[in-house]
Design a protein around this nucleic acid. Sequence first.
DNA 1: ACAAATTATTGTAGCGCTACAATCGTCAAG
DNA 2: CTTGACGATTGTAGCGCTACAATAATTTGT
Lengths: 334, 334
Amino acid sequence: MKDAPRPSAKKLTMQDVAAVAGVSPMTVSNCFRYPERVQDTTRAAVLEVAANLGYVPNMSAGLLATGTSRVIGAVLPSVRNSSFYNYTLGLRDAAAARGHRLITMIAETPEEELSAVQTLLGLRVAGIALVAGPHAPALRQLLDLSGMPAVESWGGADAIGCGVGYDVGAASRELTQHLIAQGRRRIGFVDVSGGGGLRYSMRLPAFRQEMFAAGLSDALVLKVRAADGFGAGGQIVDEFLAQEPRLDAILCPSDVVAAGAVFACNRRGLSVPDEIAVAGWGDYDIGRQLTPSLTTIAPFSDEIGVGAIRALLDGARTETRVQTRFALLVRESA
Amino acid sequence: MKDAPRPSAKKLTMQDVAAVAGVSPMTVSNCFRYPERVQDTTRAAVLEVAANLGYVPNMSAGLLATGTSRVIGAVLPSVRNSSFYNYTLGLRDAAAARGHRLITMIAETPEEELSAVQTLLGLRVAGIALVAGPHAPALRQLLDLSGMPAVESWGGADAIGCGVGYDVGAASRELTQHLIAQGRRRIGFVDVSGGGGLRYSMRLPAFRQEMFAAGLSDALVLKVRAADGFGAGGQIVDEFLAQEPRLDAILCPSDVVAAGAVFACNRRGLSVPDEIAVAGWGDYDIGRQLTPSLTTIAPFSDEIGVGAIRALLDGARTETRVQTRFALLVRESA
DNA sequence: ACAAATTATTGTAGCGCTACAATCGTCAAG
DNA sequence: CTTGACGATTGTAGCGCTACAATAATTTGT
C-alpha cells in the first residue's frame, strides 16, 4: 500500500470550515469562542461540519489575536510521589473549573526548570506554577521582567510570585511534640540537604525548637542527599544506631524513606513502634498499607494546587502567601 | 506599597528588542532561530539586550508564521508509578536531543484524554504521544483527520498511529515459564479488567498458553479493577486462598500489588518464596527494596519514550510497530 | 584597484484568528 | 407600509513572527 498514509495533511483553517458550512469565518470563530452569540441552528451546523472535518481551532492564532491564552503551565520536579500527583490533579481540576487547561513540564534540576519556564513563557501561557526548591538565579528575574503571573507551591516567605503551601514548620513542630508526648527521648532527625529548599529546610529548626523546649538533646541529625528511595531508609537506620544505639525515634523526610527505615528495623529485629518510633512525611500510599502503618504529615496537596490556580487567575499580589491545611496522622508506627 | 507590582506588564516584542539593539527585527529573529546566520558580535549584543529585557520569543507567532512547532505533547494516564515516570523522561530527553520540548497532560479517563488531545491539537504541537488503554471512540478519527503525527506507547497491533512497546505476551510467557520451571503448579493469575487495555490484556492469554503447554490448570484467575494500590494485594491473597488453599504462586499485575500480596502473606505467616511465590510486573522501586525483593518484568520504559519520539519525528508510518526490550528480573520472591 | 563571490542584514507579505464596527434581517409598533 | 429596535452575521485590520527575496557590507582574486 503506497497510498499516502495521511492524505488530509493539508491544514484546515476556519476558512475551510466556514466555506463548507456556508457562513463567514467570523461566525465559525464565534461558535467556538462565544457560542451564545450565534443562533442555535447555525452553531449546530457549524460545529457538526468542524467535527466531521476534524477541525480544532488554532490556539496560537487565537492567542496572537487576543493576546491571552487559557492554558496554565506547571513545572514539576519529578512526579514520583503522590503529593505531586495530587497537587497536579488539584491544579488541573481547578484550572478546568475556570475554563483553563493545564500543561506540565518535568524539570529535575534548576537549569531544566529555567528552560521549562522559558518554554512556557514562549507559549505565552496564562500563568506558571512552580514548586519550591532550588531555582536558577536568573529565574526570578525572568519571571519578574516578563510580568508572567507565577506562584510557588510549597513556597514560603521568599517565594517567586505568590507562595502557596502549608506551614511546614508548624507541621514539624506538631510531629515532634507528638513523639515527645509519647515519651520518646532520643529522637533522630533526617535532614535533606540541598534539594527541596524550604519544602524541607523549615523542618529542622522547628524540630530543634521543640526538642529544646522539652529539654532534650537535638544532636541526632543526619543529612541525606535525596528524600527518595527506600534504600535511604536502610542507611539511615544503620548510621543512627551507630551513633546512638538507644535511639527511640526517627523523623524521616518522607514516607518512602520511613518505609525503608521500617524495613531496616524489621531486619534488625527492632520492633516498630515498641522499641523505636518511625515517622514519615507526606501521606503516601505506602504509609497507609505498611505494617505498621506510618504516622505522618498529610499535606492536602490538592489544596495547594487549587490555591495556586486561584492565586494565578485572580492575579494575587506577588507578596501574598496562601496557607493551606495539613494534618498529623497518628497511625501505628509512632 | 501601592506601587504597581508588575510595571513591566506591557508585552515585549521582537520590535522592542530590535529597537534597543539597533538592528532590524529580522536580525533578532535570526539570532534566535538561525544563530549561525548572524555575526557573532551582533548576536551577542542582541541576546544580551533580550536577556536584560526578559524577552522570550512568542512561540505562537512563530508557529503561525512557520506552520511548525518544536513542542511534543504527551498524554499520560496518571503518573503514579516509575514506569510512566521513566517513560516521560525518555520522551523528554529524546525530544530535547532533537531540539524539541515536551509538555505533558494528565488524563485519567478516555474523555479527559480526548480533551487533552484536543488541547494539544489546538496548540498545533509537532506530535502527540499517547499511552495504550481505553480511548474515546472519536479519538482515533480526530487524530486521523487532523493529520497529527501520533504514537501509542505500550500499543500493539491496534495502536493509534505508530505503536511502540515491548512484547507483553512474550514477557508474560517468560515469567510463567519461570514459575513453572521452579516447580510451581497451582499458579494464580491476577487480571486487570477494563483499564489499561493491551497494556494488560495480552498477559492472560500468554499465561494460559504456557500453563496449557505444561499441562497445568489455568483456572485460577482473579479479576481486579485497578492495578494500583497495596490494598489490592491483600484482597487478592485472601480471595485466592479461599479458592485454592494450596496455591503456590501468584502473578500480580504490578509490583505495587505484588508488594501488597507479600505483606498479606507475611501477615498470614505464609513464607515467600518458600511456600508461595509472588511475581510482580514493572520493576518499581518498591520491588527492589522489599524483603524479599520482587521477581518482576522490567520494561525499559525510557526506551519506549525514546522510540516514541523517534517514530514521531521521523514520520513513521501509522502501521509501524516498534519493539522495545524487556527483561525478566529473577529476584527473591519467585 | 575593481569585479566577483561571499556573507550579513533588512523589507515585504502573510500565517490563522479575533476585536470591533458596520451591516443585514426580522419583527413589533405606529 | 414605514420606522425602529434588536439580534445575527460579516468585513477589516492587525496580533508577533518568519520565509524569502533583495540589498548592503565585506572579502577575495587578479
